[in-house]
Amino acid sequence: MANIFAFAEQRAGELRKVALENVTAARALADATGGEVHVLLAGSAGIAQKAEQLGKHGADVVLVCEHDALKDYNAEAIAALAADRIKSGGYRVAVFSTSAQGRDLIPRVAAKLGVGIVTDVTDARIEGDAVNVKHPVNIGKVIATASIASTPAVIGLRPGNTTLVENTKAARVEQVQPVGDPSASRVKVKEMKQGTSAKLDIGEAPVVIAGGRGLKSADGFKLVDDLADAFGNAAVGATRAVCDDGWRPHSEQIGQTGRVVSPDLYIAVGISGAIQHLAGMRTSRTIVAINRDKEAPIFKIADYGIVGDVAEVLPALTAAVREARKSH
């Protein structure tokens, strides 16, 4: 029997989808050995209300830490708290996400515990004395199976890679205290500029419409925005080429030096399909490419392709998607 720890990421008091992914994955690990799932949820007063949602995805215990200084992500305080809980709980695996916050948090936690860590994990199993994980290396061109020999093993899941499963548990809520003074951090968030908050994030949206140089200009991206709008559940991504040109912010960049996404549907619009771009989207479930060059490498990994000019194909596709969504 092995209990599993999971971390519940929140922003502005709302759980992020990766929080539920972590709990779902932790549940599967715990069920394989008959253990419990304990989830750490930290935030300002009132965050405890989110415990129920964590219970729905399989949390047995939600450890809630409420403190004003934990309202925003507070790296030092959260790392100290997580490491302390993991140590005292004697968990076999600690499950985090390889989100922007997770990337910052997990190595600190592993360092405090002095244990093995692997990020961007696409599969994890407890096998005998080891925790074996799949982890894409060399920008996803090779898949490593790595073995973590320590207890606990600290893992960061690839966001979007875990299909949420409801597995309702009546989660017990336990209040826990911060470690030290959370206001005393050497690193402080001074300001947070939320992007257009109405829009979905590329890491969370089930559909991602990504645009490249084929859109010709920042204004050309309106075609992509319109298609995303028609889907209603889509986020907009971009290639490095267009982020470098300032057509889109770097936070939307997908690829080797940008973000890695695995949506249900990825539509590449006017994107050539350079290997560095594929690194960020090749594990998407269904890939569609629209490009006027039938030799473009993107067609090699696309499930469906249309050879054509974006100016002609996108408006037609947007209208058709709108129609299809209406008849639902």
Partner: peptide
């Protein structure tokens, strides 16, 4: 002071 890109947001942090 450093700038960080988060998912759909930018963060400005002060450090010692």
């Amino acid at each position: 002071t450093a700038k960080r890109e988060l998912e759909g947001a930018q963060e400005f942090v002060e450090f010692t």
